[in-house]
C-alpha cells in the first residue's frame, strides 16, 4: 500500500512537471526554440496568484483566474517583444537561445525588485485534507493535480487534433514554409502556441502553489529545468511525450525520495536524462526528424 501511495504522490508531482513540459514541447515543435524563460512563467503565475489572493484578498475562484490571464499575456508578450524579430529574420538558433536566457534573467530580477528576493508563503487553497482508503493515504491536492492534468491533456489533444487551429499548428510544426503556402498565418499560430503553452504553465503554477505553498523569484529555475528534462525524456516536440515524461519524472523522483534518500533525487533525475538520451536520442516518444534541406 505504501508503494501505491508513493506512486500516486509521484503522479501528483509529475502532473505539474507534465503541464510545464507541454509548453516547452509545443514551442519547440513550432519554432525549434528551447524557451528557457518558460520556467519563469510559472513563477509569474505564482506571484499573480499571490497578489490576488493575499494582497488584494480576492476570493479563491477569482484569484486562480489571474495566473491564467497573466501568464497567457506574458507568453504572448515575450514572443512578440523578444523572439518575433529573430524568428522572422531567420536568426541563428544560438541567438534565440541566448535571448531566452536573457528573458529568464530579466523576469527573475524584475520580480526580485517588485517583491524582494525572500520566499512568500501561500495560504492553504483547496484539497488540504487527506484521502484514506484501506492502508492508502494521499492528500486531496495530489488527486486534484492528477485529475486536472489529465483533463488539460485531453483538452489539448482535442484542440490539436480536432480543430482547424490545431491542424494548422501541426502543419506549421512540420513545415512552416509549406504551411504558409496553404494560407496559414504562421505568425498567428506561433503566438497561439506561446499563449496555450503559458496557460498550461499557469495551471501548473496554481497546482504547484497549492501543493508546495511557497513562492520566490528563482523558483522557476529548477522547476523549469526538470520540466524541460521531462519534455526531452518524452521526446521534445511530442505532446503525449511531454505528458509521459512529466509523470515518469515525478514518479521516479518520488520513489527515490521514499526508498533511497532525498539528497540524491536530483542526481537520479538528471542521470536518467543522460541515460535516455544515450539510448534514445529522440526521447521515448520522439520521432527522428528528417533534416530539412
Amino acid at each position: 500500500m505504501d508503494f501505491i501511495t508513493q506512486l500516486l504522490n509521484g503522479l501528483g508531482l509529475g502532473s505539474i512537471y507534465a503541464l510545464i513540459a507541454l509548453g516547452y514541447s509545443m514551442v519547440y515543435g513550432i519554432v525549434q526554440l528551447i524557451n528557457f524563460a518558460h520556467g519563469d512563467i510559472i513563477m509569474v503565475g505564482g506571484y499573480a496568484l499571490y497578489v490576488m489572493l493575499v494582497i488584494a484578498g480576492m476570493p479563491l475562484w477569482l484569484a486562480v483566474l489571474a495566473p491564467i490571464v497573466v501568464c497567457g499575456l506574458a507568453g504572448v508578450l515575450i514572443e512578440r517583444l523578444a523572439y518575433q524579430r529573430l524568428l522572422t529574420h531567420n536568426a541563428e538558433r544560438i541567438s534565440l537561445l541566448i535571448t531566452a536566457l536573457g528573458v529568464s534573467i530579466f523576469l527573475q530580477n524584475l520580480f526580485m525588485l517588485l517583491f524582494k528576493s525572500d520566499a512568500k508563503t501561500m495560504p492553504p487553497m483547496f484539497g488540504s485534507g487527506v484521502f484514506e482508503l484501506g492502508g492508502l493515504s494521499v492528500t486531496y491536492s495530489t488527486l486534484i493535480n492528477i485529475v486536472v492534468s489529465v483533463v488539460m491533456m485531453i483538452g489539448l489533444q482535442m484542440l490539436v487534433n480536432r480543430t482547424k487551429i490545431g491542424k494548422a499548428m501541426q502543419a506549421t510544426s512540420e513545415d512552416a514554409g509549406a504551411a504558409k503556402l496553404m494560407g496559414i498565418n504562421t505568425n498567428k499560430i506561433i503566438i497561439i502556441t506561446f499563449a496555450v503553452g503559458s496557460i498550461l504553465a499557469a495551471v501548473g503554477a496554481v497546482l504547484y502553489c497549492n501543493t508546495y505553498p511557497q513562492i520566490k523569484p528563482t523558483m522557476g529555475n529548477l522547476l523549469g529545468l526538470k520540466a524541460f528534462v521531462a519534455a526531452v525524456l518524452g521526446g521534445i516536440g511530442s505532446i503525449p511525450g511531454a505528458m509521459l515524461g512529466g509523470y515518469l519524472l515525478g514518479v521516479l523522483e518520488q520513489l527515490t525520495k521514499a526508498y533511497i534518500t532525498t539528497e540524491v533525487t536530483d542526481a537520479v533525475v538528471f542521470a536518467i536524462l543522460i541515460v535516455v538520451l544515450l539510448v534514445r536520442p529522440a526521447g521515448l516518444m520522439g520521432k527522428n526528424r528528417k533534416e530539412k534541406v
Binding site: 491542424k167 501541426q170 502543419a171 496553404m182
Partner: peptide, 30 residues
Amino acid sequence: VRMGLAQVPEGRRVFASMTVEENLEMGAFI
C-alpha cells in the same frame, strides 16, 4: 494564397505525418 495564387512547392513538401485527406483539408485552409 487568399487572393487566389497557390503554389505546389519544389520537393512536394506534403505534411508527412498527416493523412492524405488531412493534407487535402489543409489545402482548403483558407
